[in-house]
């Protein structure tokens, strides 16, 4: 068994909706999948007409030489694995339910928007509106694990409900607005207006400025944090930047409806 590997046969100029890959595992055979009709421009093509396809695992997919015209990779995907090489378009992992998505490259805006579960790994940068609310929903990421090696753009993580998010790079302006809950670990710098109207959640940062409206708690033992980081490490399968770092805990102001906590680490 080898992963199903797709590569564009020729240069393309129009946006292409890659959400058809999320259903690949439902096909009886590779042959059926290859003759599936997809739209490119205003014409229908068989998958095999646009892509050269090798391998045979319909639930384990590799996209090679991806380009920024490819939107909706991993859209609503359930249970499958996908590895993508190259820079891609909008809405990577939009409303994904489960499984894993790995991107070796950069993603445009709206990656992980409306994510419900599963794991996303981005070994590159992500654009604005990362983990955005879906068009018709009032909550951002509902659950899941996210790792971004590079930077994340503006307006990210609005109204996150649950989830464990690790960002090794920097994060743009207006992140975590009205965050409902969940945990976010940020190694790099943080843009303006962080965490406006935050409700709950745990945030790991190095920027002392952000603790202004918070109160430092006494030096509790951080056994749970240790345990939590170990768990994250086992998912990420590599070192987490927080390991062996000293953490100070700050808690939010109840009167301002802020029940969130900040773990400040020294860089």
């Amino acid at each position: 068994m080898k992963p199903l590997t797709l590569k564009l046969k020729q240069k393309i100029t129009y946006r292409i909706d890659m959400s058809f890959l999320s259903d690949a595992y439902k096909y009886k055979s590779i042959k059926h999948f290859m003759s599936k009709k997809i739209i490119y421009g205003n014409q229908e093509f068989k998958v095999s007409e646009l892509f050269s396809v090798t391998g045979n695992q319909l639930n384990n997919i590799v996209i090679k030489s991806a380009i920024p015209l490819m939107d909706n990779i991993g859209y609503k995907q359930q249970g499958i694995r996908m590895n993508v090489y190259g820079n891609i378009g909008y809405s990577f992992g939009k409303q994904m339910v489960s499984g894993s998505l790995v991107l070796h490259g950069n993603a445009l805006d709206y990656a992980a928007s409306g994510m419900k579960g599963g794991k996303i790994f981005i070994y590159g940068n992500a654009g604005d509106y990362f983990g955005a609310k879906p068009n018709a929903g009032n909550e951002g990421i509902l659950d899941g694990f996210i790792y971004v090696k590079g930077n994340v753009g503006n307006d990210s993580f609005q109204r996150v409900r649950r989830g464990n998010i690790i960002i090794d790079g920097n994060i743009g302006n207006d992140a975590c607005r009205e965050m409902i809950s969940g945990s976010i670990l940020i190694k790099g710098s943080i843009g303006n207006s962080f965490g406006i109207d935050i409700k709950r959640g745990s945030i790991f940062i190095k920027d002392r400025k952000l603790t202004r409206d918070y109160t430092q708690s006494n030096d509790a033992e951080y056994n749970f944090i240790k345990f939590y980081l170990t768990q994250l490490k086992s998912i990420l399968k590599k070192k987490i930047f927080l390991e062996k770092k000293k953490l100070k805990r700050y808690y939010g102001n109840k009167d301002k409806n802020n029940l969130s906590e900040i773990f400040l680490f020294t860089a």
Partner: peptide, 27 residues
């Protein structure tokens, strides 16, 4: 929206005319 196999599909990002035109993703 875009008409795709017998149905209209909606995508607020991919079918944003400003982007489509400036990036020449339509002809």
């Amino acid at each position: 929206i875009k008409h795709v196999s017998n149905s209209f599909k909606h995508d607020r990002e991919s079918y944003d005319s400003e982007n489509l035109i400036s990036k020449k993703n339509v002809d």
